[in-house]
Simulated assay, not measured.
Amino acid sequence: MDKVDYKKAFKELYQPGTVPTAIEVPQMNFIQVDGHGDPNEPDGEYQQAVEILYALSYTIKMSLKKEESIGYFEYVVPPLEGFWEIEDNEDYDVNKKSKFVWTSMIRQPEFVDEAVFKIALELTRRKKPQMLLEKARFVSFTEGLCVQCMHLGSYDDEPATLEKMRKFIETNGMVFDLSEERKHHEIYLSDPRKGTPSSRKTILRYPVKRI
């Protein structure tokens, strides 16, 4: 059986164009870690969160292959994602990195549930006892109606793409629907450790509602 590659199997979620589009985002499973502050800080809270997410994700992928009872299937670990906002409910501003409040996350395959997540926690804890695995949690949620667009280039240049999305939303009878449950969402298709900022591909996704 071929590996499930979510980026290819769900192109509408992971391969949008550079023109904004509306999309209904279905229910999905994630492992999440919350945090605060500049994601570029070396060895900072964000970098630690990413390490936790990948450690747990690869434990599930590599260590549970023989667990037939859970319905395991071969797959490619999906890309890193994140929810972003600014503390004190200020408008989102890429220049206020120290005030970022974020939730970093990686999608999990359908066979992962709370029980599988707990197994992964225990297995990872044995290998990497220094990791703060208590920060991680398993969640399943439906994002619903959103507008998304592919952003090409540096993260600091996102405002130009966000402005395109804002105009699309206004001209198509929708408004932003940001709340504690629905936030500015980014999906990272490029490894920031490789290549140049100008070559990065990032999906920007905003929750909306029709008016």
Rank of each mutant, 00 (worst) to 15 (best):
Y155S: 08
V50W: 02
L64M: 15
M131D: 07
D2M: 10
F73K: 14
E41G: 00
G195S: 06
T202W: 01
L53T: 02
L152H: 12
M1V: 13
K209E: 13
M105P: 04
S199M: 09
I169N: 00
I60A: 07
C146S: 14
K61A: 10
V101Q: 13
T171V: 05
Q32G: 01
K66W: 02
G195Y: 06
I86N: 12
K65D: 03
K209F: 06
Y54H: 14
F30V: 11
F111Y: 15
G35E: 06
Y188H: 10
K3C: 11
I119D: 11
D91S: 11
E134D: 13
R126G: 04
R182V: 02
E74K: 14
E170P: 00
E85Y: 03
R193V: 05
E67L: 12
V94C: 10
V116L: 03
Q148T: 04
L178A: 05
L132W: 01
W84N: 06
K194A: 12
D34I: 01
V112P: 10
D191W: 09
Q108H: 03
N172Y: 06
S57I: 06
R210V: 14
G82I: 05
S199Q: 15
L178W: 10
K8H: 08
N172W: 02
P207N: 11
V101G: 04
V25K: 00
Y92F: 15
G44T: 00
F168L: 06
E45M: 11
P42V: 11
G17P: 00
G17C: 04
D191N: 15
D2A: 12
L133D: 10
A9E: 15
R210D: 03
V147H: 01
C149A: 06
E51S: 13
V4F: 09
T59Y: 03
D93W: 09
K65T: 11
H151N: 03
I23N: 09
I86D: 04
V112H: 06
M165W: 04
G173D: 11
Y54C: 03
V112W: 07
L64T: 12
L64K: 10
V208Q: 06
V76L: 12
D177V: 04
S190P: 09
E170Y: 05
T202D: 11
A9P: 02
S104L: 09
V76F: 09
P207Q: 08
A9W: 02
V139A: 12
E45P: 04
N172P: 09
Y14H: 05
L145C: 07
K194W: 02
K183L: 12
T59V: 15
I31F: 05
K96W: 02
